[in-house]
Amino acid sequence: MKYFRCIQYRSSIRVPSTQKKILKALGMKKLGKSKVLLYCPSVLGMVKKVEHLVKVELC
């Protein structure tokens, strides 16, 4: 199985509520925190929606 690390580097203030919900679903709680996520189409779609708020690194 493939994994990747997602790091939130921009705040969720002044973004649409749908994007805030996506960040919450991904487990992003605070700036600078990272989360290791499974490399699957559903997660990649969520990351694509908030790509301006997070950085992605392959593990």
Rank of each mutant, 00 (worst) to 15 (best):
M1T: 04
K2A: 09
K2C: 05
F4W: 13
F4S: 10
F4M: 14
R5K: 15
C6D: 04
I7H: 05
Q8G: 00
Q8P: 01
Q8M: 08
Y9N: 07
R10W: 07
S11W: 02
I13V: 13
I13N: 07
R14P: 00
R14G: 04
R14Y: 07
R14N: 15
R14D: 12
V15K: 08
Q19L: 14
K20I: 14
K21A: 15
K21E: 13
K21C: 04
I22V: 15
I22C: 07
I22L: 13
I22T: 15
I22F: 06
L23F: 09
K24P: 06
A25T: 13
A25V: 12
L26R: 14
L26A: 05
G27D: 06
G27N: 05
G27L: 07
M28K: 06
M28D: 08
K30Q: 11
K30I: 03
K30G: 03
L31N: 01
G32S: 01
G32N: 07
G32T: 02
K33F: 00
S34D: 12
K35V: 15
K35M: 09
K35L: 10
V36A: 11
V36T: 15
V36G: 10
L37C: 03
L37T: 05
L38V: 14
Y39F: 14
C40K: 14
P41R: 10
P41M: 00
V43W: 04
V43Q: 07
G45I: 01
G45P: 02
G45F: 03
M46K: 15
K49V: 05
V50Q: 05
V50E: 03
V50P: 02
E51I: 08
L53G: 09
L53N: 07
L53W: 08
V54R: 05
V56I: 12
V56Q: 01
E57Y: 05
